[in-house]
């Protein structure tokens, strides 16, 4: 094939592939309503729902009597790879049985160190902690990311076994 013929063939082939690409982008341009998947994030905050298993941060659920299920066994503290859970516990004498008992004073959770790996939730024998589905966790002060998970004055639920 002569150089001139190759030259024009290249031009037409280039135009053809250009139009093939333009056809696809043109389809999405004209069918934007059907094909678009972009979410308008801050505006759809009220309707945006995360999946049930989404890992946002660790929380300790309390019931209506301000009681939780944490016995202070430190399983989560040992399972955590980053040291983001610290349990401060003390021994008290149970008034009913007279035996010494271990209760938690503070369940400290450093959200800033947490990688949300879910190992603490799996390790917990009494299901005292779980993952919350919130995700807007930015704060102005780093100290706000260190949380005490058990509420003030809360107790261990009676039916939870050691």
């Amino acid at each position: 094939m002569s150089a001139v013929a190759t030259y024009f063939k290249d031009i037409f082939q280039g135009l053809k592939t250009l139009l093939t690409g333009m056809k696809i982008t043109g389809y999405y341009f004209s069918h934007a309503r059907k094909e678009i998947i972009t979410q308008q994030y801050p505006e759809n905050r009220d309707t945006l729902k995360m999946f049930d298993r989404f890992r946002g941060r660790v929380v300790m659920p309390h019931d209506e009597n301000n009681e939780h299920a944490c016995t202070g066994c430190s399983s989560c503290e040992l399972a955590c790879p980053n040291g983001s859970i610290e349990i401060m516990w003390e021994r008290i004498v149970d008034p009913e049985t007279g035996k010494k008992k271990k209760i938690i004073d503070k369940h400290v959770y450093h959200h800033s160190m947490c990688t949300l790996c879910n190992l603490c939730i799996i390790a917990c024998p009494t299901d005292a902690i779980k993952m919350e589905q919130t995700f807007e966790h930015a704060t102005f002060d780093r100290k706000e990311l260190t949380m005490i998970l058990n509420k003030p004055g809360s107790k261990v639920r009676k039916d939870v076994e050691e």
């Binding site: 995360m50 049930d52 298993r53 989404f54 890992r55 790996c117 879910n118």
Partner: peptide
């Protein structure tokens, strides 16, 4: 996200099975 709970750092496998 629905099955593993995260989009990138899923940590879904555990030794001996799945999370």
């Amino acid at each position: 996200e629905e099955t593993c709970g995260a989009r990138l750092t899923m940590n879904y496998n555990t030794p001996g099975g799945l999370m």
